[in-house]
């Protein structure tokens, strides 16, 4: 699903609310019939994973950054990937050939964006929330990302994307927000 709308219309707020990352939000959320208020917030965020607009690459190598989610205490449905799985995952987002001991902070902005995406995807969330994932990418990286998203969606993960660019034909549905956060259009 793609979400679009002018600046300030609440696209990021919508994603943060879905990830239970919005202080003061009210209402109820559920994923696969499981209500948000029956789960610890950390566990909910592992299931409904937000990738913020600015990728946060921590000091350290590529491997440290990719397995970071497994260094946190929260329970995961997916086991920590080994080196082989990491390398093939990197290949799938167009980062094949990068060694796992490469200093992640020295990667380009586009590469960092894909590492941050991969880090979230590897944890196997049920819903993936992407805040302008291709805003900082060149057309080539952007299409590599789109292909990766098609593969992720094929595994049954729901994807909600905030997007400014023209439709790339991937989204099954489209939400349009207007100033003030009202939903004006919803459709395929």
């Amino acid at each position: 699903m793609d979400v679009s709308g002018p600046s300030g219309s609440g696209k990021t707020t919508l994603l943060r609310t879905l990830a239970r990352l919005m202080p003061g939000a009210t209402g109820s959320l559920a994923v696969d019939g499981q209500r948000a208020d029956t789960l610890a917030p950390q566990r909910w965020r592992a299931l409904v994973a937000l990738l913020p607009q600015k990728p946060a690459i921590l000091p350290g190598d590529l491997r440290t950054n990719l397995v970071l989610p497994w260094r946190l205490k929260v329970e995961r449905d997916v086991a920590e990937p080994g080196s082989e799985a990491l390398l093939s995952a990197l290949d799938e987002v167009g980062l094949g050939g990068l060694p796992l001991d490469r200093d992640a902070t020295r990667l380009s902005v586009g590469q960092q964006a894909r590492v941050a995406l991969l880090r979230v995807v590897l944890t196997g969330p049920r819903v993936l929330l992407l805040d302008e994932p291709d805003a900082a990418l060149d057309p080539e990286s952007s299409s590599a990302l789109a292909q990766a998203l098609v593969r992720i969606a094929a595994t049954g993960t729901a994807i909600v994307r905030v997007r400014h660019r023209e439709s790339d034909g991937l989204a099954a549905r489209r939400l349009v927000l207007t100033q003030g956060g009202r939903l004006t259009e919803a459709g395929p």
Partner: peptide, 13 residues
Amino acid sequence: ENEILALTALGAS
């Protein structure tokens, strides 16, 4: 701020 948001979104306490 960005790092904390990203970590929290990954399920960090």
